[in-house]
Every structure is written in structure tokens, then in C-alpha cells.
Simulated scan of single mutants.
Amino acid sequence: MSLYNQTQTPGTLYVVATPIGNLADITRRAVETLEKVDWVAAEDTRHSKPLLHALGINQTLISLHEHNELQRSEQLLAKLKNGENGALISDAGTPLINDPGYHLVKLLRDEGVNVVPLPGPSAVITALSAAGLPTDRFTYEGFLPAKANKRLAILEGLATEVRTLVFYESPHRLMECLQSMQTAFGEEREIVVARELTKKFEQFVSGKLHDVYGYFIENSDKVRGEFVLMLKGAPEKSEEAGEAALIEQDKMIQVMLKQSLPVKQISEIIAELTGEKKKPIYQRVLELKAQS
């Protein structure tokens, strides 16, 4: 007898969250569903087979990863339309959160096929719940680009974001990422780094960016496992302070316009001084130039 009175409607895909480390975090509903479906689509069948074996589940596994998702989605759609039930899992955590599955789920929704989510572990939420940072508003940015210039450009674009920022990072890029963050946000921005969540060596390291960077320099043996990086958002500006800042900015622009400096150069100078994005400043310089 099902503990949850769960009935499976033919032709349904169940999106099933699996543990991010501790096998005991699997839900009863997830186990029950994985046992009853006709097949399980997995990001890496070599990784998922031991997981299902540990749960005592003998199931047909179908690979679905970033390189075959478009083609595989059409195949799974046909199976579901034929009345089969399937489950989608990733290597760890909730599928589609930085893992394959988006194209499949979108296709099924577009085709009117039933998609049912089964909630469970997620590294983002797990890390935030114990970080001690504001969680009423946050933005998840996933993995940053590997190339330093692209990574820095994205971080600089987030420098004035007031929400808590959440990133994933791999051990071989952690130190480079922390360096880029210091350049973009300043050494004093507060950060919490979570590693090996729910596992034996779970750890949270918190403090100013330069302090956390220094910790990992001195403890290079800790630069291993999977990381969630959480940064405190930029302080919110009051409406009055914002208006005052804009007035001062306009004064600086007008002074430089009187000196006949090029619009592009003025916008670059103002952006450097204020930390604001160049595009809106450039537009404002053009407006003030037209008025003068």
C-alpha cells in the first residue's frame, strides 16, 4: 500500500530529485516512484545505476545528457504518448537546476504530456538555508564562464545587485573565481562558501572575500569537492540618496562636456567612478549634450 496514495496516470514523466551526497535524504515518494515507472532517464547511467542498486531498485535506465537531449527527448515523448510512465533524474539533486532536462520538459509541456515534479534535495537551497545570508531574495547564477575575461564581465554586471548571489564552482577553478570576485565586488564583500554538502566533510567557510580567499590559500587540501558560493548583495540605496547621486553625476557630466570631452570617454570615466553600467550613463551623456 502506498504511503502517499500516489496513483500514476499513464503517459506521465516524473521529475525526481535525488540526494546530493547523503543517501538518507532520498524521499519515500521518490523511491516509490522510481520503483513503479517503466524507465528512468538519467544524466549518467553509470552514476545512477549504483544509486538505484543501493535503493534496491532494478530499473531500465536511458541516458539523457547535454549531447543527446534533443534527439532523446523525441524518443521519450513517443514512449510517454504510448502510455508509458518515466522518471527523470540527474547525477545529484533536482533535475534541470544546472543539469539536463529543460528541452525534454519543454517539449512535453508543448505536447500536452503530464509532467509531475517530486521535490527533494537541491544544493542551492541546502547551502542557503545554513549560510546566514539574506534569503528572502536571491539570484542563482550557476557556473561562471571558464575564461577570465568573460567571468569578470558577468561579475562586474552583478556588482550592484542587492539580492544574495549564488554560484556553483568546481575545485580547479575556485581560486581563480574568488580572485575575480574580489576584483568585481571588492575585497570586503561578505561571502559564504559551502563544500561537500550533506557529506562527511561538509564545511561552510564565511567572511570577507579576501579572508576566505586567504583561508583556501593556506588550506589547499580543502580545495576539493563541489562548491556553492554565496555572496551578500550590494547595499540598497535609499530613494533620496539615489536622486542625490544622479544630480551629482549630471554635474560631473556637464563639467566634462564643457571641456569638450568625447561622449564615450565621459561615460567611461563616470562608470569607473560610480561603478554603474556604461550603457545608461552613455545615454544620459547624450541627453545632456543635446540639452546644452
Rank of each mutant, 00 (worst) to 15 (best):
L104Y: 04
D38M: 06
K49L: 10
K279W: 03
S206T: 11
E111P: 05
T126F: 05
Y102N: 07
Q59K: 14
G83R: 04
I266E: 02
L152F: 04
S48R: 11
A123F: 09
P117C: 05
S206R: 15
I89T: 03
M256D: 00
K277R: 13
F216N: 05
E111W: 04
E190Y: 14
Q182S: 08
P50C: 01
K237M: 12
A131Q: 11
V40Y: 07
G112Y: 04
E196I: 01
D221S: 09
L61I: 01
L257F: 03
G86V: 06
A92Q: 09
P117K: 09
G101Q: 06
T160D: 09
H67D: 03
V263I: 15
I217P: 03
D136R: 12
L257P: 00
E69R: 13
E236F: 03
A123T: 03
R151D: 11
R28P: 03
A241S: 13
S267E: 02
K200Q: 12
K289N: 06
L108T: 08
T9R: 06
P100M: 06
V162A: 12
P262G: 07
R29Y: 12
P134K: 08
Y102D: 06
I217N: 13
T33A: 00
I154S: 09
Q283K: 10
K150R: 15
I269N: 08
E240R: 15
F216C: 06
G132K: 07
L273E: 14
E84Q: 14
L155Q: 10
K49S: 12
G242M: 10
V15S: 10
T60L: 06
L13C: 03
R109M: 10
Y213H: 15
E35I: 01
